[in-house]
Design a protein around this nucleic acid. Structure first.
Lengths: 267, 267
DNA sequence: AAGTGGTCTAGACCACTAT
DNA sequence: TAGTGGTCTAGACCACTTT
């Protein structure tokens, strides 16, 4: 049915067929090769990155995509299956496939692993302590993959559960992306910051890498969290990434773990 | 091709066909129903649990299993795909599908998330401090899903990286499963304890749930880890599960995080 | 050469959602 | 009723490993 070299869609240069298709015995060695469904996955991800389909929006159906890319529906299905496993899209039977968004009850706790020892989890209240622009120190620049001295937005906030200060976060964001970020904007916004980043700055976080350590509260932390100096705190350093594995946020959090814990599932 | 009610294999009571099969329009409401591949997955998992195929061993090929269960190879494939994603089995192209085992370089760090801040990860040395049998306290019994007062094996050990004590672990294990566990046995064994548990006690860990907190070293911890009293430590409480989500290990670890960190990927 | 998992296609029907 | 994703089948060929 298909020629061994698939030309796929007009906008794209053409897929490299990795395997002979049904009814044909075509076979050839390709210098760089990947399965068709991986190429489809990459193309769809590019469309997400370029903003062709924005977070929360419906993407074309499997059949439409199969026609567009000139592959079978099953191949598109396998591509989207993986993207669904990667939390890039969400499938809803009968409705369609939607671009993942941080504006959902479902994803409120996706990146917040601090849970109460007792009782039901609920989202904390935010208090912005400080917002300023500064030149990136070397260590920050390295983690954000920008140049030392580049403009960054620095942000400090305190999160409270039931009016008890529990999380002190310091954030560094590339100035080039988060231009108009102000304390007012942050204070009037309810819910996870990643929702704001997504809507206002077109930056959708897809994954994060965290490093945890135990530390003692210094004076500044003790004051903001209303604890004694020397209180043990969970230090969480996070780098968050958007499409293309581009780092776009550095966060250093201090978690008070006397009534909460960091939950992690190993498998 | 297939009858709507599949009788599958002799040892098993028969699968409930959730969907009409190709060429037939059979359809019926089932009170409890799940997709065929989920039922296959459950059956294969039962065989793992019963020890029909042991860790490290080769399981039958997809075609053999398809014949045994009287379903198509694609359905078996989907079942095994999920089991592979769950780390229950490992697929090797050209060789077959193997039962996951903790006796592999690949899985040495599967449950050990503490990495050095600098340099290459390597596996720590073990020192068993204490092994004894005791009656399960209420909190331990609850987490291990046994009765308060049941026999448990208690174990304390220190793990060191390059001769620097870094992890102090207290473990509680159900006495019914870990009967002959002694300090000698543990000391002569090299590598992850889960390998020993698997080989000597037939208990393979499939997942674990961890709760992290920051604490201060008490006198006993300070002595064993060679740090000052009050040093901040990462407290990791872990419950590990074997097949059937049965809890079989409770572990309370204290991690020294001055030169190491707990690494976690969020997605 | 034979057997394994990996990819791809084609077509059928089901479950669910919206109109 | 039409369209979506979800399941299941059947068959082909590929890549890899072992005999």
């Amino acid at each position: 049915m298909n020629s061994p070299h698939l030309t796929a869609i007009v906008q794209n240069p053409g897929l490299t067929s990795p395997a002979a298709v049904a009814g044909s015995a075509a076979s050839f060695a390709s210098p760089t090769f990947s399965p068709l469904y991986q190429q489809i996955k990459a193309l769809i991800t590019q469309s997400l990155q370029s903003g062709e389909w924005k977070p929360g929006e419906l993407i074309p159906s499997e059949n439409e995509l199969a026609l567009r890319f000139k592959v079978s529906q099953g191949t598109v299905r396998k591509a989207i299956d993986e993207m669904s496993a990667d939390n890039l899209v969400i499938r809803r039977q009968g409705k369609g496939t939607f671009v993942a968004t941080h504006h959902e009850a479902r994803s409120q706790f996706r990146f917040l692993r601090l849970l109460p020892d007792e009782g039901v989890p609920h989202y904390p209240e935010n208090r912005i302590v400080e917002v300023k622009r500064l030149r990136a120190p070397a260590d920050v620049a390295r983690l954000l993959d920008i140049k030392s001295g580049d403009s960054v937005v620095f942000l400090r906030r305190v999160q409270s559960f039931s009016a008890i200060p529990t999380i002190l976060d310091d954030l560094w964001l590339p100035g080039s992306i988060f231009k108009g970020l102000t304390a007012e904007r942050l204070n009037e916004y309810k819910g996870p910051m990643y929702g704001l980043f997504e809507s206002e700055f077109g930056t959708h976080m897809i994954r994060a890498s965290e490093q945890l350590r135990a530390v003692c509260a210094d004076e500044s932390a003790a004051q903001l969290l209303n604890v004694d100096v020397g209180t043990p705190l969970l230090n969480v350093e996070r780098v968050s990434f958007t499409y293309g594995d581009k780092p776009v946020e550095l966060r250093r959090g201090l978690y008070l773990t006397s009534a909460h814990h960091y939950q992690n599932e190993l498998s």
